[in-house]
């Protein structure tokens, strides 16, 4: 290297010793445009690369956490196994009976659409997914309506019957539901139960009392547990927003809630009234009328109504 340097020094300068500065200010407008174009392309390329990389990261993380279920078609045999999965009380026996698949039917020959319709015709079923698992298995994944209320009907066709009501108002028979659970459900009164060719229509009234039931179940389960009858009374016709909810329980023969007032406030009042009444030995109460402006009205059994003033002027 030293020899090369010495040789270069001795032999004089060549043109390559001149400093070139191609990144300096462009000499003409054409050069300026060219540089701007190159920079724009570079930035666009970087952005596209970054977006692509980000998409890749998101896609990889998504598919890692939600792996794709790949169904590979293989040899198709007879349906020997039914894999039944549900979130409710329906059982595999019910599914086998409902589907009624003839013996020796090949998995590939199943009409999944028809089978799906058959299962969904049962009111208790919210949705169903049917999958072929080659070579012999039919997988059924059912999502059921879960009951929150029950109703008693006297139908000319069905006779006297107890039906269950889901939180979306769907009325169904309640196949396989444990008796103890059904017995603990409050009975719903009021509201009009309509029927068409496919069965009962959803009860609209449920949507009005559902917030009360949710709040009571979540915040005051000890109170909710005792509710055995719930009645909704519309004040201005069937579809009006404002109505009263009348509830019967062992501690208070009748508790009145109003949909016009916040249910949580009314539940707080009820909790206070019941606690107070228990301490005073007044239970069971005859009536608790909760939606007063600043107070709740309580009527003791066989006495005149009286007003209870809360400690924190809550009422």
């Amino acid at each position: 290297m030293a020899r090369q340097n010495r040789q270069k020094k001795k032999s004089g300068r060549d043109w390559k010793s001149l400093r070139q500065a191609p990144t300096r200010k462009p000499g003409t407008r054409i050069a300026w445009w060219r540089r701007a174009k190159i920079r724009f392309h570079t930035v666009a390329l970087c952005l596209a690369g970054t977006c692509g990389f980000a998409f890749l990261v998101v896609a990889v993380s998504y598919f890692t956490s939600n792996p794709l279920e790949v169904n590979l078609a293989g040899p198709s045999g007879t349906v020997d196994v039914i894999d039944f999965q549900t979130n409710g009380s329906l059982g595999k026996a019910w599914a086998v009976k409902t589907l009624d698949i003839p013996k020796e039917t090949r998995l590939m020959d199943l009409n999944l659409h028809a089978l799906k319709k058959r299962i969904e015709s049962e009111g208790q079923v919210s949705s169903v997914i049917l999958q072929r698992r080659y070579p012999h298995m039919l997988r059924i994944k059912v999502t059921e309506h879960l009951p929150i209320l029950k109703i008693y009907i006297a139908d000319p066709e069905l006779g006297k019957k107890c039906l269950l009501v889901s939180e979306s108002g769907v009325v169904f028979e309640g196949i396989g539901q444990p008796e103890q659970m059904v017995g603990g459900l409050p009975i719903l009164f009021g509201g009009k139960l309509l029927k068409d060719s496919e069965g009962f229509l959803p009860l609209k009234v449920v949507s009005k009392i559902k917030p009360l039931l949710d709040a009571a179940r979540k915040k005051y389960p000890h109170i909710f547990r005792d509710w055995n009858r719930i009645r909704y009374e519309s004040l201005e016709g069937q579809d009006a927003l404002v109505g009263l909810v009348r509830i019967n329980s062992p501690l208070a023969k009748e508790v009145i809630f109003s949909t016009e007032m916040d249910f949580m406030t009314q539940l707080e009042r009820l909790d206070y009234v019941l606690n107070y009444s228990n301490r005073e030995g007044w239970t069971p109460l005859s009536l608790v009328d909760l939606p007063g402006r600043k107070s709740a009205t309580v009527r003791l059994s066989g006495e005149m109504p009286r007003t209870i003033i809360g400690q924190s002027q809550l009422f």
């Binding site: 043109w15 001149l18 070139q20 500065a21 191609p22 990144t23 300096r24 462009p26 000499g27 003409t28 054409i30 050069a31 060219r34 540089r35 190159i38």
Partner: peptide, 24 residues
């Protein structure tokens, strides 16, 4: 060999376009 300033002028014309002269 050539004149330094003349060669420099040619280089600067090309450099002004944002390119470097690889060889002359």
């Amino acid at each position: 060999h050539g004149d330094e300033s003349t060669i420099g002028n040619y280089l600067h014309v090309v450099n002004g376009f944002g390119l470097e002269v690889d060889d002359m």
